[in-house]
Design a protein around this nucleic acid. Sequence first.
DNA 1: TATAAATTTACCAAAACTTGCCATTTTAAT
DNA 2: ATTAAAATGGCAAGTTTTGGTAAATTTATA
Lengths: 107, 107
Amino acid sequence: MASFGKFIKTERERKGWSQTEFGALIKINTPLVSRIENDKKSLALDKVKLLAEIFEIDYEKVKDLFFADKFAKDAYKYKCSESVFSAAEAQTKYLKEINITQGKLTF
Amino acid sequence: MASFGKFIKTERERKGWSQTEFGALIKINTPLVSRIENDKKSLALDKVKLLAEIFEIDYEKVKDLFFADKFAKDAYKYKCSESVFSAAEAQTKYLKEINITQGKLTF
DNA sequence: TATAAATTTACCAAAACTTGCCATTTTAAT
DNA sequence: ATTAAAATGGCAAGTTTTGGTAAATTTATA
């Protein structure tokens, strides 16, 4: 995967939509579509579900792409080490476990 | 690692500081220290360097912990799949490569 | 080539979130 | 019981995010 922006562009073109047509479907205007596709803005999280629907792709998959891209950009920007994601994975497992034993968590 | 908040609490106690003493060192007040230790607020990124210094821990290591915790909380909160971090890692490598071949990136 | 469509860029505003404070309450230690 | 330490409630300033309009540029087509 190149980036979430490129993913959107690829899928939009696969559907044969212009940025304007696509924008109407997810309710953002054309310039914003352009910026998103070029990774200059990010798609709002609450549009991800709708995006999956109009692209006819599994929502969980699109959501993962969305976050993987977001995490990667942060890790790149702040020059995290190679191991940051395995640490994050371990940490996520820990959060799931304490949720099982101690009930719902809120951050 | 339990969480970034718990990490701070552990290190602060190892140093024998109260939340107030510690807060004075990193220039935040006591209630905020409490919330950070209990993961109800997050430490501002620009305090991480100072944190590493006063704890006498390698900055890169603390920064990684900071981001791993942040990523993990997002992944947990939004119920990402198990594979989101390996996808993120691959994506980060991709960003580094295109940076080598195409120059600096800005998000 | 002229022009029309599509995309990108510049600039800006409103909304949402973050960071952090003060005042107060609760918990722990002596 | 008193004092120190920690936690919570509520709020304000500052920043970031989200997204818009207008204008410019690029691409495609008659």
